[in-house]
């Protein structure tokens, strides 16, 4: 319940934070909302030497909805839930945020923290993959962008290099008529996804013109269900095509097994939830 001792510095700028992180990339850690890190510290599963508080860095804040959509890494789940401009163009943020943890956690936890932590059962990875998002990373020598689908490497492992900070998430503005759905089967204790499905879809004359499905919770990292998308493009969203897309997604998923849920169960949930997500977008 009581963390081991650490030092604490409030970073005054992004470059300040990067500099501090670079001093000891293994021992120093960033903290913003702290809702993943602090429980870990309390259970003494981690004991960093220095916590770098980035919560005051303005550059990491804000939701901008313009030709592109930019979400600063410090944006809390509650802000994403409440943002009306965001909800108008990308309602999936509202749908997913409402299923993340609980109101108090949402008030403090950030999307950047969730993405950088890369918990395989977190919700945002699937959402940003499905939205073809790009993550903006700032390091000691350069800034770069990486596609969300390439960012998640393995359980709790990302493409972030030592000394890099996640700055923001960028997404293209969706086509008019695009539809969105986030579905999730929650673990009853942790609230994390046993399986979560993010789906975006455009229909033109009842034919699928664009589709992207991403899955979280089922496997060691969130992934894009490309085979399903490929199958659906150019076809009507019929019961048969939905079933085939669900089945292809299930086949693509190399599911995790734990003492709560077997890999077989997760695979079935992937199919069921993909199917239900797509069906809900049909005519929605």
């Amino acid at each position: 319940m009581i963390p081991a001792s650490f030092d604490y510095v409030r970073a005054t700028s992004l470059s300040h934070a990067i500099g501090l992180l670079q001093d000891d990339p293994d021992g120093n850690k960033l903290v913003a909302g702290g809702h993943t890190l602090i429980p870990t510290l309390k259970l003494r599963l981690a004991s960093p030497a220095l916590l770098i508080d980035i919560s005051g860095i303005d550059e990491l804040r804000g939701i901008e909805v313009a030709d592109c959509i930019r979400i600063g890494a410090l944006t809390t789940h509650a802000e994403l839930l409440a943002s009306k401009p965001l909800r108008e163009v990308l309602p999936i943020f509202h749908q997913a945020a409402d299923m993340i943890a609980d109101p108090q956690v949402r008030n403090r936890g950030t999307i950047g923290g969730s993405l950088a932590n890369a918990d395989p059962a977190a919700d945002w990875p699937a959402v940003v993959i499905a939205l073809k998002g790009e993550l903006e990373l700032a390091g000691p020598t350069r800034r770069r962008r990486i596609a969300a689908r390439d960012f998640f490497v393995d359980i709790m492992t990302t493409a972030l290099e030592p000394g890099e900070v996640l700055v923001a998430i960028h997404m293209p503005r969706p086509n008019r008529g695009a539809k969105f759905r986030y579905r999730k089967i929650r673990h009853p204790a942790s609230g994390y996804a046993v399986v979560g499905v993010a789906a975006t879809l455009c229909l033109r004359d009842d034919i699928v013109s664009e589709v992207m499905i991403a899955i979280t919770g089922a496997t060691s990292r969130a992934f894009a269900a490309d085979s399903a998308s490929t199958h659906l493009i150019g076809k009507p969203l019929s019961t048969e095509n939905i079933a085939m897309a669900a089945s292809l997604t299930g086949e693509q998923a190399e599911c995790l097994s734990d003492h709560y849920a077997s890999a077989d169960y997760r695979k079935h949930l992937v199919k069921t939830e993909v199917s239900r997500a797509l069906a809900s977008l049909n005519g929605a």
Binding site: I185, Y260, A261, D264
Partner: peptide, 11 residues
């Protein structure tokens, strides 16, 4: 009777 257990029994 957790969801995985119920599902598994049905299977």
């Amino acid at each position: 009777m957790t969801p995985p257990r119920v599902w598994s029994a049905i299977q």
